[in-house]
Design a protein around this nucleic acid. Structure first.
Lengths: 234, 234
DNA sequence: CGTGTGATTGACGCCTGTCAACGTCTGTGG
DNA sequence: CCACAGACGTTGACAGGCGTCAATCACACG
């Protein structure tokens, strides 16, 4: 299901000067605006599949996408989320590889598609832009390496606590203090790298201990200090 | 202990056209040759420490370096190795962050040091070069993400088998079929993300099953097919 | 109202980390 | 040449974290 209403202008995205497009010239932005195509996607839609050949880069204008790899017996491991202003699919294009993750909509999304050629042209012609993308990739790399250490050395309880803190930092809180992302228990488990049942049990324990409050998929952090302590972060 | 004999010329490194410097101009290479400084390092020496501010990028001209993060109670998690032609320390420089890993010599090494400024100048002035570095970072990112999935979903036996295959592919075999990297059991455990004793036990089992042969730190793969099967790779 | 998806809880047992003891090897100094 | 220390490797015992299986509940939807 796709619809074309509410096509966002790149200017709007770029207006946030902390984002990935901040070093594009006015002309480049207009060009991008002309070249790109935008679509609306509902929860559950798959943007691209692991193993497929990517044809371009997507930029999230609204909503949340999860990027995951499929491991043993179809179990998914969530690698990262992409939200407003983030780009996805940029990695495989560079090395002309097949997509190494699947991208699936978690919260209804407006997505802009930039064809490979236009994207690569930009990278080649605008050095500042290229530099920013490199930084972005390196940041990702740093996070991934940290997570490797965590997952290799921390137990599930510590990791889950840490993930909750990450989610809070990445997505923020609504007026009621609820973390602004709605995930199934299975998805929470698939970020943490554990079984769904284990995630549920530990969430229940955190609730029991008054560290968090649970209301369906709504999660509120009640005691951040203790959550940090549980996560083994200092 | 450092000595200055046998300073390598960048031309030698660059002569391998698959490497990271292949798109530098003759002039840039000569410049680099002039700017860089080279040193010899013995096994065990630390090139830089996690948490320190990096002052430049290192290029391995000979030998092997391990890059690791220090986790809970000082346990190290090896993130990657760098060998001839590889660069280390490039990530933190880009984002002006503190080094996120420690770099330690595994096998005696000739290292070239390129100061931050020279490195960043190159990145800014030579778009092709910058593009190659970006690719390199993206490749790393892909590997890291794969390993996250592995470590989250595979058991220690599968991971260890996989690591042995990685080591064979990355470092090759000598004339006797021995994998050309010498690691302590503890280091093998610290790549795999397990306890030293577990790594030892599983290595012994592999030996028992005639999948590998062990002779001190010398490891020979006897039955690659079964090792792949053990690693759950298809 | 039946169906399906997700959430929860209990039971069970294996994998794996930890602790401890001991063996092996190398280098050093007396 | 021997004794010793120290680093590394190996093996056994043990417990508990966590994954798996299964049953049940909650809730939305056609």
């Amino acid at each position: 299901m796709k619809s074309h209403h509410d096509i966002p202008f790149c200017e709007q995205c770029v207006s946030n000067m902390t984002n990935i497009f901040k070093h594009l010239s006015q002309e480049e932005i207009e060009n991008l605006n002309y070249t790109k195509s935008c679509n609306f996607h509902k929860r559950g839609e798959i943007i691209y599949h692991e193993g497929n050949r990517p044809t371009g880069v997507y930029c999230v204008s609204k909503g949340i996408i999860k990027l995951y790899k499929t491991g043993i017996e179809g179990k998914e491991q969530i690698i990262r989320f992409a939200k407003k202003g983030d780009i996805i699919g940029y990695r495989s294009i560079l090395s002309s590889e097949l997509a190494c993750t699947t991208a699936k909509v978690i919260e209804e999304t407006n997505l802009c598609f930039i064809p490979s050629e236009a994207w690569l042209d930009l990278l080649h012609s605008n050095n500042e832009f290229s530099f920013d993308i490199m930084k972005f990739a390196c940041d990702e790399l740093g996070k991934s390496n940290s997570f490797i250490t965590d997952i290799a050395q921390k137990n599930v309880r510590e990791r889950l606590a840490e993930i909750l803190l990450f989610l809070k930092n990445d997505f923020g809180l609504d007026k009621d203090g609820v973390i602004k992302i709605s995930l199934t228990r299975e998805e929470i488990a698939n970020i943490t790298g554990t079984a769904t049942e284990s995630a549920i049990r530990l969430l229940s324990e955190f609730k029991e201990d008054k560290i968090i409050a649970l209301n369906g998929r709504k999660i509120t952090i009640l005691d951040e200090k203790r959550l940090q302590k549980t996560a083994n972060i200092y």
